[in-house]
Nucleic acid binder design. Structure first.
Length: 719
DNA sequence: GCAAGGTC
């Protein structure tokens, strides 16, 4: 009697084997595929892995027309390029199945897992799925796996399998048929063979990008005025803003300035509040993708690829998770002790290990199959990681460590200045207790505006009060990271597919722009044509409908065949109408394509103007980002242009340096030590004219000028 | 060839 347990993927097979084995499982390979032999309760057990879906849907006949509904399950390597590795897994399962007389599915307990198990049994093992039992666990711990083993479900969950199969078929019917319809329309109109596509997820994603594009195009900026007061205290200048932040009428703004200028100005009120900020929760994939985008500018796809490599090296946990919770039984202490061997993390790790209890902050979201992303405690070998891998690893490690650290405490100061009964507000904020910011502050930090002490009633020395004209701005364009977030919010796609689907929209020429996504005229037209003819496919409602139907299939209230039949009927009608209008739709799509090609050739000039505009936009974005999320520390005046010299962070490497606020028109920069706290001194080096900063590293504290080549640098504390 | 979903 031999039992074959089928796992969803290799490393889960290993975990199951180790959990069930009474001694140590024996690792063997077949066609290069690892599997495990072990025994428990006198039973011989083989644990073998799938690699996700081993089978996929494909048309029975190789025709290019539509409608097409005649499809079947085939091995993935037959239907898709780059899937040849799956062949060995299928061969291995087939071979191992011959040795077994009992079968257990132990894939992730969700609809896709059930389909993976079902198709593996039926097509790879050649076994009737009705004969298989089911192990059902929601965490990959020894305890949960053993519990599942002793509480086997007598069969796989056929409701779940059917729901999953229906999902596969419906997505195929809708997606492939409409993609073919679009492609044929172009072919009819132009003779060009150009692949267009849409689907249940692509459609609504492109649609919300188009909506934003239209909002931007239709946006009419309206002017408004802000009033600012410049005041001086202890020889330093500060800017307070008028209580009403936006004034829509210029005359009103003028009047306020005139009246306020009369004074006298005095401090009416000083409010000081302390704010506790808890550490951020551990990473789920979406949050990691957003954070890596904002810290390093990596696309969600790139981040997933890098995280997958770290996972394969064994130094990080599985990245395709939507959980923000760490496994309860994880040995936190071991991992932190291990991370302490990396000099960069040593001080943080030691501090955490000194705490009486290691309890991480957790987020709301959970995932039945995987915990949040965490460093495993196995360390990268020196020189093993590329810079990109180092960046993502650093992000994951710091986020993990920060979860155990103390909250940060911020002091928020508000000084209300009265000048002739007009109120101006001077705001300050500083971090009083760094807490987790010490570890993770590199990636999220807060405004650091330190104000001197103000007394209520004290007179204020006003330098200037003036109005500034501003314009309302159109809504921001989506970035790859914010698209993923929006998809998450709408509940379309999955953590593992969203990044790839976004890439597809780029490939099809529907969208462009690496950071700020613009919809191309083709993308606009595709949505327009679909909305007119097949509104279902660009609506998130289709996903909702699928989910409801899958739910009913799972509960056995509805048969999968009926759902599939209905979809087919609906599509036949839609596609017939589409085909009748094919030529017109094609012409409509083509028109924009041709215009676009012409534009590309003749309008080099506009392309350049756009770059200047974009440069400005990027500059603003960087500034905003830094103001919002980094400590904006002003260390002095730029010797070249008089602008502010501020501490900035390199987008790629995350390293800090000092740069001029007038960048890109002024390119003055100074390198900075990466360790220690930077404190502005207001002093200027008599030798080189560069600002002098105080650097505080633990108990050590010294002053140094920013110019690396300055001789005076050598004798510390002499400024 | 086209989808979306697992995973390397």
């Amino acid at each position: 009697m031999v039992t074959l347990i089928i796992a969803e993927k290799p490393n889960v097979a290993k975990k199951i084997a180790y959990a069930l084995a009474e001694r140590k499982p024996i690792r063997k390979t077949l066609y290069g595929v690892p599997y495990y032999e072990l025994s428990r309760d006198g039973k011989k057990i083989i644990v073998a892995p799938a690699v996700g879906h081993l089978y996929t849907l494909a048309p029975k006949t190789k025709t290019y027309g539509y409608p097409i509904f005649d499809i079947e399950w085939v091995p993935v390597y037959v239907a898709e390029k780059g899937k040849s590795y799956a062949k060995d897994y299928i061969k291995a399962l087939r071979e191992l199945a011959k040795r077994a007389d009992e079968f257990i599915v132990a894939c992730d307990y969700d609809t896709e897992g059930e389909v993976i198990g079902y198709t593996a049994l039926k097509y790879a093992c050649g076994v009737d799925p009705k004969k298989a039992k089911r192990m059902k666990f929601s965490a990959l711990t020894k305890r949960d796996i053993l519990k599942a083993w002793y509480n086997l479900e007598p069969t796989i969950n056929f409701g779940m399998a059917d729901a999953g199969i229906a999902r596969h078929i419906l997505d195929w019917y809708w997606g492939v048929n409409l993609s073919r319809a679009l492609t044929h329309a172009i072919k009819r109109a132009s003779g060009k063979w150009m692949i267009l596509s849409t689907g249940r997820v692509q459609g609504p994603t492109l649609k919300f990008l188009v909506e934003r594009e239209k909002e931007i195009a239709n946006f009419k900026p309206t002017p408004y005025w802000v009033i600012k007061m410049t005041l001086e205290k202890n020889g330093k200048q500060y800017t307070a803003t008028y209580e009403k932040e936006r004034i829509l009428d210029e005359e009103e703004a003028k009047r306020i300035v005139q009246e306020a200028k009369k004074g006298p100005a005095f401090v009416e009120k000083v409010e000081v509040k302390q704010q506790k900020r808890n550490p951020p929760h551990p990473f789920d994939l979406g949050t990691l993708q957003r954070e890596a985008y904002s810290a390093f500018g990596y696309s969600p796809k790139k981040t997933l690829d890098i995280a997958q490599r770290l996972y394969e090296m064994g130094i990080c946990s599985y990245p395709r998770t939507s959980s923000q919770k760490l496994p309860k039984n994880l040995n936190y202490k071991y991992i932190i002790q291990s991370l302490a061997k990396i000099p960069e993390y040593k001080p943080f790790a030691h501090e955490l290990l000194g705490k009486p209890q290691l309890k991480p902050v957790e987020g709301q979201k959970d995932d039945p199959a995987h915990p949040a992303i965490y460093p495993t405690g196995e360390l990268p070998k020196p020189g093993e990681l590329t810079q990109e891998e180092k960046n993502i690893y650093d992000l994951i490690v710091r986020r993990f460590l920060a979860a155990f650290a103390d909250p940060a405490v911020r002091e928020i100061m508000k000084v209300i200045i009265n000048s002739n009964n007009h109120h101006f507000i001077l705001s300050g904020a500083r971090t009083v207790k760094e807490g987790w910011l010490k570890i993770y502050g590199k990636y999220v930090s807060f405004d650091e505006v330190i104000l001197p002490k103000f007394r209520e009633g004290e007179p204020v020395k006003v330098i200037q009060i003036k109005r500034e004209k501003k314009k309302t701005k159109p809504p921001a364009r989506y970035s790859p990271a914010s698209v993923i977030k929006k998809m998450e919010d709408l509940g379309i796609g999955t953590k593992a597919t969203r990044a790839q689907i976004l890439e597809t929209l780029y490939q099809r020429g529907y969208i462009e722009g690496k950071k700020k996504i613009r919809v191309t005229p083709l993308g606009m037209k595709v949505v327009e044509a679909l909305e007119k003819n097949v509104p279902e496919i660009v609506s998130v409602e289709l996903t909702r409908e699928f989910e409801e139907k899958m739910d009913e299939i799972m509960k056995r209230k509805l048969s999968k065949d009926r759902v599939i039949e209905e979809a087919r009927g609906q599509l036949i009608k839609i596609l017939r109408e589409f085909k009748a209008k094919e030529l017109d739709i094609g012409k409509e799509l083509m028109e924009k394509l041709l215009e676009r090609e012409k534009n590309k050739k003749s309008k080099k000039k506009t392309a350049k103007e756009l770059t200047a505009e974009e440069e400005e936009a990027i500059k603003n974005a960087v500034e905003n980002h830094e103001k919002k999320s980094n400590n904006l520390i002003i260390v002095g005046k730029c010797p070249k242009c008089g602008g502010d010299l501020v501490v900035r962070y390199n987008r790629k490497t995350g390293k800090r340096f000092v740069g001029c606020s007038n960048w890109p028109s002024c390119d003055v920069t100074y390198p900075l030590l990466q360790r220690g706290k930077i404190i502005p001194t207001g002093k200027v080096c008599p030798e080189c004219n560069a600002p002098v900063v105080k650097i505080k590293e633990g108990k050590k504290e010294y002053e140094v000028c920013l110019d690396m080549k300055c001789k005076k640098k050598m004798d510390k504390n002499k400024y």
